[in-house]
Write a protein that binds this DNA or RNA. Structure first.
Lengths: 345, 345
DNA sequence: TTGTACGCGTTATCAT
DNA sequence: ATGATAACGCGTACAA
């Protein structure tokens, strides 16, 4: 207990009259040690307010007690909700959260991530879409010996490494809702190419339309890139169609807001003249006028589950009689608000 | 270079034919060492792709190369923009970002933060409002010997520890804009008690009204708590006034959105029957209909400046002839969109 | 069940 | 200007 004022494991050992190693055993919950000595040591620990030094542990274990969140700058709301979910679990543990954004598109992204992983040696990493869809990154984590969990719109890794929503089903539900209200000319604003979420959501739309016997018209699908502006442009194309669509499903809320904007500019009342459904249920959805009907996926819950997988102690393959694996697939729900109505006669 | 595969300082020393310490000196840019040996060592470093182990450094230095962001869950947009600004500077440095939310209100918040600081020993911490306004926390950082920078709506610490906007002035400008458009019955939705930002913004409003010879009516100010819902409630009170206000200035965009919502519900056209001005310029402001006139403060720029102060090497008081201190006060700008018009006759 | 001795990779001290 | 040696605080063989 010299310069820093913090008691060390040596102080505890001395005061408890045992060796360092015994203290270490108490801390790491080693099963083989006398109940009495353990209690004695723990009393000293509590008395001193001793806290193991994370830096020293990291050095000795060659592994830090940090969870890294690696993402590529997607939707701000999403990143934040993920952080909240993660931190909810991490709070009251010895883990802390490291945030490490990367630049997909940068040719050396993978090397950059490798350097990061090798330097910081985090205990586990959480991969957010869209880079979570990159199998090479997952392989990299595994190779380095770092735990990882990927978040995505479908299950594309095994349960231990995955938390996913089922966007395809969710979109089917949303389209069915529109169908049930009487809509037939239902157009879609799709997400950017190369995003699994965009793909899944479009598949859901197409499946629902096919199932309803309406088929899929190429011109009824306009592609955006998940931004407000791209939603405006897509809506313009769609609303130029004749006959005009009576409903638009957008792959995310941001683009749905853009579509709403364009509808307003054209003097179209929503939902009177046009119904709109979004996806994500970001805060913008409820703040818009009219409040947006949208699909909510339980992002914070998924993040919590991911954190549990990351810090859980089921290191290797679960036994046949082991407790059931934690949840992996999470269901989305359609939030019905005021942007959907029956189509006009 | 045993188990981890990573070359260590010993490998470098051996291959360069020098001692560990010399390598250490090269790494830490010690001024006193021979140019030749330095070049030789650096060649080996580059050749081996050697990277100093952060964990070992942290142990030896009793200080981690991490910047901690401590905040209390304010506006999501704000937290994220701060992270982006910070990370922009931290990228390509040896620093990483640790995110540590706390619960203001929790009685042991200060102890919790102290434990966090003593355990992780971050290189520096960034304090976000509203907890940045807590002088005891700043003192705690100083006492522990941890660099810190506070972000706030006014300068309440010295330049080395502060990045601030000038909310009072900014609001004056916003109110003046309304005044210039011809408004006289300008009401305000204030922020929650105990927030410096709420205080400063209200002061700005009152100063502008006084200066215009209109005085300050207590009933013209409704208090909210920065949430959408509180904005709705406040707007209801204000719009019940008779005569009705022709303009409302809201202490943040979120509440302004709530006010807009209520105006819509009451069949009031914005800006025809009511002008609204917000504060923050979060993404919701531009996505609303009509797009919201609001005050933008350069949050990412401020975060970048904060990061620079945190990792800069001006450790002690600047000399008289030292280069000028980095920026501390940042100016906000009024973003004029479509939610303001002349008052009706 | 417990202790001894050493390793983890770096910086600091104090010689030379 | 450079090097031997000791911290830094904790974990792990291996011995007892």
């Amino acid at each position: 207990m010299k310069k820093t004022g913090q008691p060390t494991i040596n102080d505890v050992a001395r005061l408890a009259g045992v060796s360092k190693k015994t203290v270490s055993r108490v801390i790491n919950q080693s099963p083989l040690l006398n109940g009495e000595t353990r209690d004695k040591v723990q009393a000293v620990i509590a008395d001193l307010g001793y806290i193991p030094n994370p830096q020293a542990r990291a050095l000795a274990l060659r592994r830090n007690f940090l969870i890294a969140l690696i993402h590529d700058n997607p939707n701000a709301q999403m990143v934040l909700r993920v952080q909240q979910g993660l931190l909810e679990v991490l709070r009251d543990t010895e883990f802390e959260l490291l945030v490490h954004p990367v630049d997909r598109g940068a040719p050396d992204m993978r090397d950059e991530i490798r350097r990061f992983l090798e330097r910081q040696r985090p205990y586990g990493v959480m991969l957010l879409p869209p880079i979570s869809e990159n199998d090479a990154l997952a392989a990299l984590c595994a190779q380095i010996g770092c735990r990882y969990v990927r978040m995505g719109s479908a299950a594309f890794d095994d349960p231990a490494h995955m938390v996913s929503s089922n966007d395809r089903e969710a979109v089917r539900g949303a389209i069915d809702h529109l169908l049930a209200a009487g809509h037939r000319r239902i157009c879609m604003i799709a997400g950017p190419h190369g995003f699994r979420s965009a793909f899944e959501r479009q598949q859901g739309y197409e499946a629902a339309m096919e199932a309803a016997g309406l088929g899929v018209q190429r011109t009824w699908i306009a592609q955006g890139d998940y931004t407000f502006e791209s939603g405006m442009r897509a809506a313009e194309r769609l609303l130029d169609l004749s006959p005009r669509p009576t409903a638009i499903f957008s792959s995310n809320d941001e683009m749905a807001a853009g579509a709403l904007h364009i509808a307003r500019q054209r003097g179209l009342d929503v939902p009177e003249n046009l119904s709109i459904v979004g996806f994500d249920d970001t805060s913008i959805a409820s703040h818009l006028w009219p409040p947006l009907t949208t699909v909510r996926w339980p992002i914070a819950t998924m993040a919590r589950a991911a954190a549990l997988k990351l810090i859980g102690d089921d290191d290797d393959e679960p036994d046949a009689d082991a407790p059931p694996a934690e949840e992996t697939m999470f269901v989305s729900t359609l939030i019905r608000r005021a942007s959907v109505a029956k189509p006009q006669e």
